[in-house]
Structures are given as C-alpha cells and as structure tokens.
Amino acid sequence: MKIENTYWNTNLKYLVILLSIWFIASFGFGILFVDALNEIKMGGFKLGFWFAQQGSIYVFVILIFVYIYLMNRLDAKYKTKE
C-alpha cells in the first residue's frame, strides 16, 4: 500500500512539472506573451510566432518522450522492490 502511494505521488509530481512546461511553451510563449517575444528575432522568425507554429510542437514531442523515460524508470524501480 505504502509503495503504491509513493509510486502514485511521484507520478503526480512528474505530471505537474511536465504539464507546467506544456502550458508555458504553448499558452505562455505562443499566446499570452506572444507580442513580447515577437520583439526578439531568431533568424527570420519572430520568436513568439515561432513558438506558436513550431516550437510548442517540438516541446510537446520532447515532453512525451521525457515522460516515457521517467515512467519506465519509475516502473523498474518499483518492480524490483515488489
């Protein structure tokens, strides 16, 4: 019972961290702060525009693969203890 609770709590901690990044990269950089970021240019891209049409999508892909890695590690840890 206790082991399961730690497993679940660690999972929830990962979710909070990853979903915060998810929110900041898309709703933050791509929508709420887009005008401020557009002042910065990266090559031909205005940064806010780039996050809205490119960057946020790359971040999403990376987030899921990080989650896969973290959870596989967590699963392995609890499997050995069981």
């Binding site: 979710l15 990853l18 979903l19 998810w22 898309s26 791509g30 929508i31 525009f49 809205a52 049409q53 946020s56 999508i57 999403f60 987030l63 899921i64 989650y67 896969i68």
Partner: peptide, 18 residues
Amino acid sequence: GSVYLMGWTGGYVLLALL
C-alpha cells in the same frame, strides 16, 4: 492559424500523461 497547430498536437500531451 496557430490555434490548429498547437491545438491538434498539444492534446497528445494530455492524452499521454492523463
């Protein structure tokens, strides 16, 4: 048009995590 790009990809993060 960014709403479609972010909207139709960002949902997969929710799907994978939640």
